[in-house]
Design a protein around this nucleic acid. Structure first.
Lengths: 338, 338
DNA sequence: CTTGCTTTCCGAAACGTTTCGGGTATAAAA
DNA sequence: TTTTATACCCGAAACGTTTCGGAAAGCAAG
């Protein structure tokens, strides 16, 4: 591989001048620069990023730290999509990008700080770590900038990007109400999970703002599982024929409800409108395709990457960002005709 | 960050000795080593990989080059799974891992060689590039080792890992025959595609080895599309009630056949056994869940990573590897009872 | 006493950059 | 003429490692 020195020799200029020419400094003659450029190209010179990083004390690389990059996470397009976002944005900003997984054997031996130090990471974006992961705590304390996706923790070198969980859930319920539904069931997941409470709040608030009394019997618990959701909704739908719509805290539970309707001979959306949450891959293939509120992990990844780079470069930017969840209209919801 | 020099000062030994102690050379006294180790730990020293790579002329990082790391590829769990495999294996082998995407704006400016040179990549694994992608050609020519997944090209610094396409397809057909099916339809995709020909060959050969005459009317063309498969199989199933099983060259086409049976009032698998190919996500959710032959991208990723590291380290290993596709038994196939 | 072998250590160069602090012309101003 | 400014260039040090080629000290053998 051609080095600066090679170009220097071939061109007759000093290493310094070659470097400055190639880096666009203005204290080099146009002719010299052209000549150097030409020769550099001829020799197929490309700068050694390692050497550059070493002296500049910054590597222009960002780490993407995830938990459990494993086979299991395959179904979870969420992580993959954020990854894509991060990657795209970083390559646009001309940064490198390395993938760090907390499950590697290394974690036992290495602290988060060492991980960053070794590779001279300029910053890191973190996704999907458990709230009590030691790396997470270290990251927040650390001096190397990091931004978290979907974990709202702010700090001097720390930012986060998350989505408008509450607003989007409310929007979904409002949508049902606008279509004339008054008797709306809510299929909740594990009731203590963060997202569950948020979505339940949304449900409650929108009902209230529309003057609809909350009926405790209408809130079910499907435990974020398809089978459980089906089992719990079967008797419910039998006993509550007045219910015309169901808002589900996740798509998988929505699928469970869908199955229940099928077994009862009900038609979706004519007899029951169903709206899910997550926009899982399957939701658009199922019949009828599921109306759902989808997050935009790709966008979150992009924003996270952008933010971390901004922090790295010392720009004064807000350390929080939001991306809007979107209500994705498909065919499992219709007007209430009763 | 603590450097070697810091440890040197704090311990009273030279930088050389510190380096050698930490790297396990045997020309350093046990006591000295212990002391140095202790102090290094106290100072939180961790080696600067960049500096090390610079002098050792090898970065211990492998690139994973994919085409089109974009939102669209999200559906394609294939790429993600290989990525996981590569990542897992590399972290086990103590290599770093950077993600390279060919669609970045950079590709216009940078050759493949430059990409590798800049980051001092030791090797790269390549997945999903079109056969005529300029990067692919460069990669094969290049002196930096690379291994391709699912692109059988062998070279001095090049290896590949692929799956036993033919064998696994044959296995699928054999499975049907073992269950007593004699009249087996074959739903082919675009007939000139590589995989199509392989799967067709499998079908033909297994029929032949079981003394079943090939009936040209039994091979259909569904063009790898659900709708096309359905349309072509509707009249076929009507005209050929003797057919008890269908082998489809892709899951989506299998879904099309499934639809056709539904419209005809046939039951799967009682009236028609169906076997697909690809193990798409949907295949396990559809009703009945689809028996299919699935590839193992995670394993391919692992093997590819392992191979490229072996080549990098100059080990004499075979430059090709295979991972077995697996017949995934679900509920769309049963014994022939006629 | 000299020689040679171990053991333990270290100085200095090297890797490929960037950058600080100049230097040398040439032209313009005094 | 001398000073000052400008345009262009360069030497050398620095970044944090690794490694080559010794060197000093201790000890055994001749």
């Amino acid at each position: 591989m051609a080095t600066l020195k090679d170009v220097s020799k071939a061109s007759g200029f000093s290493v310094t001048t070659v470097s400055r020419a190639l880096n666009g400094y203005d204290d080099v003659n146009k002719e010299t620069r052209d000549k150097i450029m030409r020769i550099a190209k001829e020799l197929g010179y490309s700068p050694n990023i390692l050497a550059r990083s070493l002296v500049k004390k910054q590597s222009k690389t960002i780490g993407f730290l995830v938990t459990d990059l494993k086979r299991e996470s395959v179904k979870d397009n969420f992580m993959f999509e954020t990854l894509c976002g991060v990657s795209d944005e970083l390559s646009e900003l001309d940064y490198e990008f390395v993938l760090l997984s907390t499950t590697t054997s290394k974690q036992k031996n290495k602290t988060y700080g060492q991980m960053c130090a070794e590779r001279q990471l300029d910053g890191v974006v973190i996704q999907g770590l458990k709230r009590d992961d030691p790396y997470l705590l270290e990251a927040i304390e650390s001096t190397v900038p990091c931004v978290l996706v979907d974990i709202p923790v702010e700090g001097i070198n720390t930012g986060y990007v998350t989505s408008n969980q509450l607003e989007s859930a409310k929007q979904a319920v409002r949508y049902l109400i606008r279509l004339g539904h008054r008797h709306i069931a809510f299929m909740n997941g594990a009731p203590h999970a963060y997202v569950s409470t948020v979505r339940y709040d949304a449900y409650r608030q929108v009902l209230h703002e529309n003057g609809i009394d909350l009926n405790d019997e209408y809130v079910l618990n499907g435990d974020f599982e398809e089978a459980a959701a089906k089992n719990v909704s079967l008797p419910f739908l039998l006993n509550h024929p007045e219910v015309t719509a169901a808002f589900c805290a996740s798509d998988v539970m929505a699928l469970g409800v869908l199955q229940a309707t099928r077994e009862l001979g009900l038609n979706v959306p004519e007899d029951l409108s169903i709206i899910g949450f997550d926009n899982i891959l399957l939701s658009q293939y199922v019949s009828p395709p599921l109306t759902t509120v989808g997050q935009q992990p790709y966008e979150m990844g992009k924003k996270a990457a952008k933010m971390v780079v901004s922090i790295v470069e010392g720009k004064d930017v807000p350390h929080e960002a939001f991306v809007n969840n979107q209500l994705i209209l498909r065919e499992s919801v219709t007007k209430n005709r009763r």
